[in-house]
Structures are given as structure tokens and as C-alpha cells.
Design a protein around this nucleic acid. Structure first.
Lengths: 211, 211, 211, 211
DNA sequence: GATGAATGAGTATTCATTCAT
DNA sequence: GATGAATGAATACTCATTCAT
């Protein structure tokens, strides 16, 4: 028994090692830009061993994605359980986004991977459905939290705004050549921005459907 | 002379054809995912001809980037020349972002391309500097426009917020599998969001440096 | 024009070079045993060049097969046009089988290739249908020739017997380790055998359906 | 001792399991087309275990071959012991060939395997010699039986003819795409053919060495 | 005995790029 | 100018085999 347990633990550890390598490389080079050889070298294993643990390159990145989705799920559940003022709720969410970015920085890139249109070895429909469903649930949870905090049926739009802003800022911040600002947004900038958004969301009394 | 002129025109036209093909493919498949063969087929030329007009694959995408930067430059200059209320300025900028996305949708993707760290045929330092400088100027122009409209030294932060929000929303909107919301933000959502941002930026009186 | 013609000729010649290499290797090592690298080395081209002329490994071997089928077709047509005694007809056919074996010795092996059950990049249904149809026509032609010579509705069975005997003898003759006889059948043996078969077919008066 | 015996029996049984799997796969996919992983999966063992019982992939197929050779040997001895008319002898041999094909259908394919010229882990010379010797003995036995039945020094040629015809017919019959006849030879066809051959062999009075 | 893990050497195929015509 | 032909270096993935437990 002890043997089997240890084996399972070791196996899990190796898998995680491989995922860590893939994560790092994905961030720097994107999906097509990352090769299985690089991944293997990065974790000092032979390519064949990588394929012993994962059936294909795709499977590696899908595993990464599921890890990210789960991280989201836990984080949002924790926030939902807290009892905070609207302002603090927004701040807390923003902070959580930062954590996602710290611990699963590849999460943003993965959407690009899944967006590939006609790739050959494409993700199976089953997996695709799982991803969509789980992601959808996560987003709904975020919208619910915001709806609770803000009321006014703005939860969904607020979720869009927060999530997209953070995503955009993150991308800008990470790219080595900044196509926009001559310096990347700092943490202070980020704080300033969430305050502006908060302000917009909270003081927004006279909204409505005047498209 | 007339002959030379015509030649130059034809040459420019051919180059544009190639760039159009590259643009379309870049959007669907990313930089590493797009092959020179695909580009050649897409514009019904031989690969060798593509390489006659552009020294390398990288050069094609860099040209694309410069086109985008120029588009930005013109657009922002036009906006700077207008005399609008703060609210309308924000709306106008948001609308312009939409135009960038319509006519140079690849612009967002290109940052990923430039972010590659150790690519072999890497962009020359000279080119890199050009890109940074021109992009920086553009961003500064945006910040100036916003500073004029809002005052309070918030131009730079406002520029970050607007640009990042739009970038994030765009990415979310374009990805085929939505990792966030179960449905992609609509134009209506986009409008709603710029209103929220506007609100935040304009009514934000008691801001300051209380991180 | 001259240029294009020459190009076409050169192209055809190169293709034939590759096919020759493939033919030789197929005979020695079978389909899965023959690698594209070997083929390339054998005709002193790079692997990439081989793939420039043929879309895939499969395509190479299918081309080989079609060459063989065509060779059959021509040969049988010629025989059908002759006016020979039954005995000479059989001898002529047997001799033709020998020619097939000399000039397209791989033809026999190719059936094994096509027999592969669940191969991934399998032959397209279209191609498969072509092969079956053309081969079937060839066989029918053989059966017709034999029916003309022998009468008695034995054409089909005679065709089976001749063809299978020759195929079997050829395989036995080519294998390096003989699983049967301690020496391989010689040309003299082959002649002796066709005489025996001829005898059986011609003197066979009291046949019938007494299974 | 009882323990040792049981062990030996179990060991033999395991080996046979592996050989059965290899046999089945060999038939469908050929030697190079069959992988040790497939063999292991087919008999629900780990690959490592397969390699515990057999030193190499080659050894597995060689064992298969020796089984076939032994089957031949027993079968021919039995026939040699019978006292039959020439006609019945031929029929009996033909029937035996059918049994070989039923119980050791891979036997035919194995010649191809052994024919490989420069395979890396090639069969040792010792083994090769064994195979040749044993096969040779078998064939000689067949020739002797036929010589006894037919006289006239035709035993060897008759053996060639019978064996090759059957081999050829079998191959044609098994291939999924028939390169020859539009339908595969049936049992009835097979019977018809042995009658023709019999006829040829028995009534052949005026033969001789007039090549 | 049995097996999970590990790997060096392949395996078909693709890619960006060059060059002679 | 334009292109068919050619290729070295990759690229994802497989294979037979070994070894520690």
C-alpha cells in the first residue's frame, strides 16, 4: 500500500513538474511557439517521458487550463462566502484577479489556444463542452457576487468590465514591448484603476437602457 | 518616370496584398501558427515571390505592426483636433478603438509576437526602438487628450484604463471558446461599459494619492 | 515552351527516380519497414524533396501500384490480340507473369500494403475504389483470355490457378530464407510447373461440379 | 518438484498467451506494423513482462515460426504413415495445407519477416541455420511423399507446385483488397484447383527434361 | 515474477528560406 | 519580376528495450 501511495504521489509530482514547465514556456512563447522538446528540457526529462505522462501536447495545455478553472472556482467561492461592503467586494475581486495572474498567469493565454479554428488534433467535443460549462459557471458566480454587491441588474456588465479590464491590463503589463504606454502600469496604477471602476459602478444611479 | 511610378505603385499594391493575407491568417492562427506557405496560397503567389517582397516572415508581421501604429497615430490626431465635452471625448475615443479593431484587428495579437523573448530571427534593436518610440508617442497623445478632457493629472491612468478595458473586452469577444462569460459582450454591453467608465472618470472628485 | 516541357520531363524523371528507390526498398523491407529517410538517401535527395514530389509516404506506394496495374493492363491486351493455340496461350501468360515480376516485382507486396486494416492515413475511398475497379478489369481480361483458350467455363478458375501459382512461386523464390524447399525453384522448375498446369487444364475433360 | 512443475506449466502457458497475441497481430499488421505495446495490451500484460518471457521482439516471432515448423513436421509425418492412392494423397496434402492456414495462418507471413536483409537485431546465424535445416527437412518429407505417390522423379517439382499454389491462393484470399480477381477464391474454387493440379500431375506421361 | 517509469533513436511530415532559371 | 525546386532544421509523437522496485 505504502508503495502504491508513494508512486501515486511521485506521479502527481512529476506531472506537476511538467505542467510547471509548460506554463512557463506557454507564457513566453504561446502555444504553437512552445515545443515538446523545450518542455522536456525545461524539466530535465526526455521527450518520451513527457509523452508517458501526457498523451499529447494538447493534453498538457488542457490540464493547465483545468487547473486554472479550478483555481478560479475556489477563489470565487471563498469571496462569495464573505460579507463585505460593495466597495470591499470589488477590491477583493480585483485582488483575487491578481492572484490568478500570479499563480496561473497562463490562464489568459489559453483562450488563444482554444480559439484555434481548424486545428487537426483539436480538443474533443466532450472536453470542449466541459471547459465551456465550467468556465460559464465561474463567470456566473462572479456575476452573482457583483449583483449581490451592486444590485440594479448590473452584475453581468460589471463582471465583464472588471474581468476585461484586468485581462487587458495584465496583457499590456506582461508584453515585453509595450504597444501602448511607454511604461507598463504599476501596482499603484492598478489600484487607481480599480478605484475608478468602483466609483463608476457605485455612483452610477441614473443608468438604464438608453443605448 | 511614368514607368517607374507605375512600378512603384504595383510594388506597393503587391506588398499590400501580401499583408492582407498575413493579417487575416494572423488573426485566426497566431504568429507561429501562420506559415509562409499559407500566406502565399492566400494571395495566389508563390512562396518565393513573398520572399522577394519581404526579407523574412518576421518582416511581414512587423510591417503589419507599423501599419497599425500609423493608423493609431492618424486617428488620435484627428480626435485631438476636435473640441468636445469630456463625455463626448471619451465616447469618441472608445469609438475609435472600435475602428482600430475593425480595420486592424491583428494589432492586439502583435504584442504577443513582439513579446517573444529568444526568437532566432529576432527583431533588430533598431526596429524595436522604432516600435517603442512610435507606440509611446501614440500613447502619450492619448494621455494628453484625456488630460485635457479630465484634468486632475489623471490622463495617464485614464488612458491605461480605457485602452486595457477595450483590449480585454475585444479579446474576450473574439475568442471562440469564452473562458469567462457564457456569452460574449455585445455592442450594447460595450456601450454600457464605456458609460460606467465615463461615470467613474468624471464624477471622481475625491481621488488622490491614497493608494 | 521549351522550358516548360523540359521542366515537365525533369519532374517526371525525378518522380520516377523516387519511385524506383521506393520499389527497391519495398521489396526488401515491406511497407512499414521502409522509411522515407531510406527512400531519400537511396536516390540522393533530401527527405523534404521527396515530400515535394509526393504528398505522403502512402502516395508513393500508391503510385507504384498504379504503375503496376497499368503494366498488367497493357500486357494482357497484347496477349488478347494474339492468335495462339491454347498451349501457347498459357505459356505466353506465364511468361508475361515473369515480366511483371521482373519489371514490377513490388506488385505482389503491394496487396499486403493495401490489406492493412485500420491504418490512420488510410487510402481514400476514392483511390481504393479505383484500385479495385482497375484490378478487377485486369483479372477479368485474364479470365476472358483463358476462357477463349480453354472453353468449358473454366476461365475464372484457370486464372486463379495460374495467378496464385505464380504469385506463390515468386514469393517462395524471393524470400532469403526458404521456409519450404531447401533450394528455390529455378527457371527450369518454373517451366516444368507451367507444363504440369497446362496439362491439367487441357486434358481435363471429365470435370464438372462434383465438389 | 510439484511446485517446479507447476511453475514450468504456468510459464509455458504465459508464453503461449503472448505468442497467441503476436500471431493475431502479425496477421493483421505484419512484422514491422506490430508493436510490442500492442502485443502486451492484447494479452493484458505489461510490456516489461513480455520482455521477461522473450528476449526481444524478434524472438517472439521466431518462436512463432518454430511452432509452425513443428506443426508442419507432425502433419507430414502423419500423412507419410498413411497408405493412400496417389489421388487421395494429393487431396490429403491439400487439406493439410488448409489446416496449417487455419491453425498457423501467420506461417506464410513469417517468410517476409525472415527475408529482411539488414535488420539491426537480426536473427543469429545459429537460429537461421536451425530454421533452414528444419524447414528443409519438412520440404524434403513433402517431396518424398509426392515421389512415392507419383514416381517419375517429379516429387520435388510437385511439392513446389502444390505449396506455391496454396500459398498464392491463400494470400489472394486473405488480402482485403484483391489485386486480382474481383472476388476471392472460394472453397469450391480451391477444390476445383486441386483437381486440376491432380489431373496435371497424374496424367502427365510424356514429360521429360525438354525445357 | 511483474510492472511503472524512463529513454535514445527513430518516423512521417512541415517550415522558413535560398537559388537557378 | 516570378517561380519551381531544393533543403537543414525542426516538430509532435512512437518504438523496442532496460531497470529499479
Amino acid at each position: 500500500m505504502g508503495v502504491q501511495e508513494r508512486r501515486a504521489r511521485e506521479r502527481a509530482a512529476r506531472k506537476e513538474t511538467i505542467l510547471d514547465a509548460a506554463r512557463a514556456l506557454l507564457l513566453e512563447q504561446g502555444f504553437t511557439g512552445t515545443t515538446t522538446k523545450q518542455i522536456a528540457e525545461h524539466c530535465e526529462l526526455s521527450e518520451a517521458t513527457v509523452f508517458f505522462y501526457f498523451k499529447s501536447k494538447d493534453e498538457i495545455f488542457i490540464s493547465l487550463l483545468f487547473e486554472g478553472i479550478e483555481f478560479w472556482c475556489h477563489g470565487l467561492e471563498k469571496i462569495a462566502g464573505l460579507d463585505l461592503t460593495p466597495e470591499d467586494t470589488l477590491a477583493r475581486i480585483w485582488k483575487f484577479f491578481g492572484q490568478v495572474h500570479t499563480e496561473h498567469p497562463e490562464y489568459y493565454q489559453l483562450s488563444a489556444f482554444l480559439a484555434r479554428p481548424r486545428s487537426t488534433t483539436d480538443v474533443s467535443d466532450e472536453v470542449r463542452t466541459d471547459i465551456i460549462q465550467l468556465s460559464g459557471k465561474n463567470f456566473q458566480k462572479l456575476a452573482d457576487i457583483l449583483e449581490n454587491a451592486l444590485g440594479k441588474g448590473e452584475g453581468r456588465v460589471a463582471a465583464d468590465l472588471l474581468w476585461a479590464s484586468f485581462l487587458g491590463l495584465t496583457l499590456v503589463r506582461e508584453s515585453r514591448i509595450n504597444l501602448g504606454a511607454p511604461r507598463h502600469p504599476t501596482d499603484r496604477d492598478m489600484n487607481r484603476i480599480i478605484k475608478l471602476i468602483t466609483h463608476g459602478l457605485l455612483s452610477d444611479t441614473n443608468n438604464g437602457e438608453r443605448t
